[in-house]
Simulated assay, not measured.
Amino acid sequence: MLVLLPPSETKAPGGDGPPLDLDSLSFPELTPVRRKLADALVELASDVPSALRVLGLSPRQEDELARNATLWSAPALPALERYTGVLYDALGFGAFTRSQRGKAERRLAVASALFGIVRGADRIPAYRLSGGTSLPALGTLRGLWRPALEPILENADPLIVDLRSGAYAALARIPAAVTVRVVTATGRTVSHHNKAYKGRLAAVLATTAREPSTVEGLISAAERGGIRLSRTGDLELELVTPS
C-alpha cells in the first residue's frame, strides 16, 4: 500500500543532515526533472521581484526566496519531518514509535511540486513552490510532471490511496488509485477540517499492523483505528466524520 499525501506550503526550518542529494531520493527516474526545477528555482531567487510574482508571494514573504536560493546547500530533513501544517500535525509522525516510523516511511509518500513524489524518509531541504506554478522558460508544472510521474505512479504499488489536493492531483493522474472524500454524516463535503481528518486516516494506515492490499482491507484497517470509511464506488471512499 502507498498512501499519497499532499505537501504543505509551510516547511520546518533547518535540518540535521547533509544537503540535497537527488541521487539518494526514491524514484530516481525523476532526477532529470527534479534537477531542472531545482536549478530554475535557484536562478529565479536571484531576481526578487520576478520570483515574488512567479511564486505568488508578497514582499513580506521574501524570506521564502532565501530557501530557494540555498536549495543545493541547505541541510536536509526527512520529508515526513519537513512538511508541517494541519494534516501533518494530525498525522503526528513525531510521536510514532520506532516500529511505527519504519512502517510510515515505507507506506507514506508526499506529492511535491519540486520533487514529484518523495517517500517519507527521503531527505529534502525547505523550499517554496506550489503545484499550480508556471516557471519562466519551463512552463507549467503539470506539463513537466505528467509525462514523468504518471508511468511511475501507475506501477508504484498495487494499492494506492490518493489523498492529494487538486493542484497536486493535476500533476499526475492515477486512474487506479483509491480516492477519499471527507463528508459529514449527512453527506455534506467537509472543507475546514478536511486536512485534519486525512492526516488521522494517514496515521492509521501508516501504523496498522496488517497492511491492507484491497479496498475492503483498507476500510477494515480504518475501522480498527476508529475511522469510518464508506464505499461509494469501486475506487471511491467517503470518510464520514463524527456527528
Results as ranks from 00 to 15, higher is better:
V110R: 07
R123V: 10
G199R: 11
V182W: 04
V215I: 12
D47Y: 01
T140M: 02
E150T: 10
R146V: 03
V204S: 09
A121V: 08
E105K: 15
L41A: 07
T186G: 12
T31F: 01
P19G: 09
S134I: 03
P242V: 07
G56A: 07
F93T: 03
A203Y: 05
N155F: 04
A121M: 12
L22I: 05
Y127K: 03
L135Y: 08
P7Q: 07
G15M: 00
S24L: 13
A90C: 14
G225K: 09
E29V: 12
G132K: 11
N68G: 07
I174E: 05
A76Q: 11
E236M: 12
L205D: 00
R34F: 01
V190D: 06
L159G: 02
G166K: 13
R123W: 04
T208K: 07
D162P: 03
D23W: 04
R106G: 09
L218R: 08
E238H: 13
G225P: 03
Y168E: 02
R123N: 00
R173G: 13
L25V: 12
G116M: 11
L205P: 02
I219E: 06
Q61A: 13
T189A: 15
L4W: 14
P59Y: 03
A69C: 05
L153I: 06
L235E: 03
A172M: 07
S73N: 00
L108G: 07
V110M: 09
L65S: 01
L25P: 10
L201W: 11
